[in-house]
Design a protein around this nucleic acid. Sequence first.
RNA 1: UUCACAAGAUA
Length: 280
Amino acid sequence: TVTSNALIHGLCEAGNMLEAVRLLKVMLERGLQLDKITYNTLISGCCKEGKLEEGFKLREEMVKRGIVPDTFTYNLLIHGLCNKGKMDEAVMLWNECRRNGLVPNIYTYGVMIDGFCKADKIEEGKNLFNELLSQKIELNSVVYNTLIRAYSRNGNMAEAFRLHDDMRSKGIPPTCATYSSLINGVCGLGQVDDAKCFLDEMRKDGLLPNVVCYTALIGGYCKLGQMDKVGDILREMSSNGIQPNKITYTVIIDGYCKSGDMKEAAKFLDEMVEKGISPD
RNA sequence: UUCACAAGAUA
């Protein structure tokens, strides 16, 4: 069963749900004992493809087989609902989860907080976060990053920085995701040169700026129409061994197009294709 | 062996 579960997971990750379900049938035919992990893995695959109905059907099926859904199961389904912006239904599932005597974990909170934030209900997200603070659940970087991203997108950098200080003071390490959100927020205010300083701060924290951080900065310069600065960042990236990816190129090409320089845009498109990245 | 967070364009 463990081996088959791992295989199913691999197929789901590859987006090959049909094969994964086929494998499930094979397991049944061979009389292999299915477990929570088998079902959770499949439910995760369905939810990632946005096939929520399938996910809920699988949950029914597991119950029929006498396998009791656990917190993972709920987290997956709640996540699926959140991704569709169905926060009211997500809240109902959250309540059902507790009614069934299951204890929400850090993932449950993380998914819900992120769902609220992405549905433009930051205050609700923040309230859940405060509830989380009062629990005996250990906090981690992800929940902080979620809120930091939300406040940064809103241009509320004061609150974003406050959370950043707060996580540090609790010994929770900022990550690349923390910094890319902060960079993106400061860039959104047009302070791209200031945002660039975060690269050094990251290194002081023992983090190596990754392609996401650099791309956020490039995007900032593009929005300001400072296309000359884009080359600087690209050089800094390559001297640090970081390769631009498809999103980086998309940002640059879009920037040149919007600044009316189609020749440069075409150059970067060519460069991207030469590197084996297919445009979309 | 299964769950959450960061950067882009899109009529």
